[in-house]
């Protein structure tokens, strides 16, 4: 035992949001390759006037993936506007409801 064990899932919601800031923009999601089991956006919903248009079936696939522990910084941001954060449980909103 040379080091302390890493706390599990130390990548928090604030880590996630700040990492997103430097992520590149997917300009054409219709030609993007997604892992098996993930359905790309519905190209029939494409419109000239809307630069990025995503059908709900595409969007809802992110639901169960994007779940991160809430850290004090994010909590403070919610509490500043009086949102009660004690009721938000990680994993309580998993995307299994189909």
């Amino acid at each position: 035992e040379t080091s302390l064990p890493e706390p599990e899932s130390s990548f928090t919601i604030s880590n996630f949001l700040s990492k997103l800031e430097s992520a590149e923009l997917i300009e054409d999601a219709f030609t993007t390759k997604y892992p098996e089991g993930i359905q790309g956006p519905d190209a029939s919903k494409k419109l000239e006037s809307k630069k990025y248009r995503y059908d709900p079936q595409f969007l809802v696939q992110f639901r169960s993936v994007i779940q991160y522990p809430i850290d004090p910084e994010f909590k403070a941001q919610l509490e500043k506007v009086d949102i009660n954060t004690n009721i938000v449980k990680k994993g309580a909103q998993s995307g299994s409801s189909r």
Partner: peptide, 11 residues
């Protein structure tokens, strides 16, 4: 991605 991060972290 930001939308879901936020949605899954608020009541």
């Amino acid at each position: 991605e930001e939308f879901w991060g936020i949605y899954n972290s608020i009541p």
